[in-house]
Design a protein around this nucleic acid. Structure first.
Lengths: 139, 139
DNA sequence: ATAGTGGGTTGGATTTTCCAACCCACAGGA
DNA sequence: TCCTGTGGGTTGGAAAATCCAACCCACTAT
């Protein structure tokens, strides 16, 4: 039987094609269907399916911003905002190991510097390195 | 035109179905085709395609471990090992926002504690929060 | 009256994915 | 010798997902 783990569970929600790119756009402040479609390159029908699923999963919310005609825009829930860590790590990995040349997009941190993020162990404060971790299943 | 960014580039390499689960297995020390197939649930033909792509992309390497008959196992390259950060953030997000009940799988850090990771800004050392970052395109 | 906008939905073609079965080279046991 | 098992795949055909262009509807602005 396949291993149950929260990576697999997370990917059930956000692992389909276009989902993470749509969430990137919303995190960047793009809220509207047409702009999300244009900026991601997703086809409109699939994007509609993805956004519905993300709303159902509690990652996005539809907010009405106009009454007549009714118009909605997409905003992140708390759960959606927490995805910034996943996106940041993906961006970092892509910059280092996939993208040729300088990064086409950088993030700025409120401290004023261009953002470069480390993953550190909450207990000991040390940066996490792959050789220092191992999986263990719960009893 | 769609936005170019390293998130999209990264997803070109590792964003297809089963790729990240296969990499999770290799990071966990599972190296062989049959075991990766069993632990992920991927069908064998698709898994073969994914592993080939990951090898071509420089994320995995095939290493011969037996001469007659020739047998290979999959190991991570440096680029592949760097994906532990992405997987860790996905696991954390899944634990918090998708998985019901206690996490089915936890990681232990070499410092002895159950791993809980923070993302911190390399410059100022503060934990990164979504409201403190914004995208900026390079000139 | 006409054009444009926002947020979709529809139909049909194309691509992916799934699944079970098969293959091949070799090893071990009866 | 024959039979069984293992590791790492490949193949064929059915089922599902995706792509694309076109359409729709309610409204606003010109």
């Amino acid at each position: 039987m396949a291993r149950t783990c929260s990576i697999a569970n997370a990917l059930e929600v956000i692992g389909e094609r276009w989902s993470l790119l749509a969430l990137r756009e919303v995190l960047f402040g793009v809220r509207r269907f047409d702009q999300i479609a244009a900026n991601t390159g997703a086809s409109r029908d699939i994007l509609a399916v993805r956004l519905r699923k993300l709303v159902d999963a509690g990652v996005l919310e539809k907010q009405q911003y106009e009454a007549h005609p009714p118009r909605y825009e997409y905003v992140l829930t708390d759960a959606g905002r927490e995805l910034h860590k996943v996106l940041l790590m993906l961006l970092d990995w892509g910059d280092r190991h996939v993208t040729q040349g300088p990064p086409p997009l950088v993030w700025e941190h409120s401290c004023g510097s261009r953002l470069h993020a480390d993953v550190v162990c909450t207990s000991c404060g040390e940066p996490v390195r792959p050789e220092n971790l191992r999986p263990s299943t719960r009893p």
